[in-house]
Computed example of a mutant assay.
Amino acid sequence: MSTKKKVAIIGSGNIGTDLMIKVIRTAKHLEMGAMVGIDPDSDGLARAARMGVPTTAEGVEGLVKMDGFDEIDIVFDATSAKAHEHNAGILTPLGKRLIDLTPAAIGPYVVPAVNLDEHLDAPNANMVTCGGQATIPMVAAVARVVPVAYAEIVASIASKSAGPGTRANIDEFTETTSAAIEQVGGARRGKAVIILNPAEPPLIMRDTVYVLVDAPDEDTQEQIRLSVEKMVDDVAAYVPGYRLKQRVQITEIPETTPVQTLLAEEGDDRPTHQVSIFLEVEGAAHYLPAYAGNLDIMTSAGLQYAERIAAAAAEEEKA
């Protein structure tokens, strides 16, 4: 008898399909219980059927009616922020654990490299956004050395890797990511920008992180660089294509630069240095090509969290 936890995925688009393939190919403690969509002709549902995964094209209502629904422990939601609110309203009262891959942010934020074990009991955990998963670990890496007065991230992804759900959630992306930069990354104030790059051939996901800190001496600056490099290794442990593009840059902020306009409050101390971190995220190409690192980091983070939940449950059952 299998001891793996059964999972369902709602959303048969890019993210949901990639996640399904990851669960089937790489998960140690999880197995697919259902793939859920609303388009009976979607490629995701067709692939699921070919791979022997039970499917429904009737959305969350169809999932609830499926044979084997009671055996499903965890439900990933890879739809949209608005749809997640509806899905959570149906599934939470039925006792299903939800892992939200939309920017709905109903539950606490989870970024595995930063706070993997903090919300293992949350009934509905939010995986922030692709940009958040890529950049928040870098903000946190700086914040564990010195206080971060302001952090700004710019996520640039290939237009071809952004499906309808991503495009419908641009506003939610900026709001959710900005909030998580503060709550998980530790910045006093956070800002997020996303760019859908239509270049051909498509470009690999790139992320830029700007952090304002007080770091006047060389020893502190070296500690920041080492902390960032360690965090890159931590993220790359579950997202192998995650890497620094160049050495972390730390530059003094000229007195004439009006950085006070970026601070959380008017009376906050003026930071002395800007930390610039340049990242690249190459996807594992489980579903979309390798340029879609935004897809890969999101599904990899969600899978990492679900695996930890399942592993913790197995440990409790053995005790």
Rank of each mutant, 00 (worst) to 15 (best):
V281H: 07
D269N: 14
I99K: 03
N126G: 08
D39E: 12
R189Y: 08
E31W: 02
S80F: 09
E315N: 12
R167E: 12
G68W: 01
D296E: 06
D73M: 05
P202H: 00
L288T: 09
A215F: 04
S161W: 09
L203R: 15
D39N: 13
G16V: 06
Q221S: 07
A236E: 06
G68C: 01
K318C: 05
I21S: 09
A134P: 08
L244V: 02
V75A: 06
E317Y: 03
A290E: 12
S12R: 02
A134W: 09
R270H: 09
A319K: 14
M231S: 08
I74L: 04
A319C: 11
V235D: 08
T79L: 06
D171S: 14
I9Q: 04
P271D: 04
K4I: 02
V146D: 01
D233M: 12
Y109C: 06
H286A: 11
L279H: 05
E255W: 11
G37F: 03
D171H: 13
F76L: 10
L262I: 06
I157T: 14
E118Y: 12
I170V: 14
E307V: 00
N124D: 15
A215V: 00
E280S: 14
E61L: 12
L94R: 11
L94W: 02
V7R: 03
M127G: 07
V239G: 12
E307Y: 01
V114M: 07
D121Y: 07
D234S: 12
V145F: 01
N14C: 11
N14F: 15
A105W: 04
G165I: 00
L101M: 13
I194F: 11
A149P: 05
K6M: 11
V53T: 00
A88R: 10
H286P: 07
V53W: 01
I136M: 06
A105P: 04
T251G: 09
L30K: 04
V146S: 03
E85A: 14
S159N: 13
D217V: 02
F173L: 10
A284F: 10
D296L: 02
D67G: 07
D100Y: 00
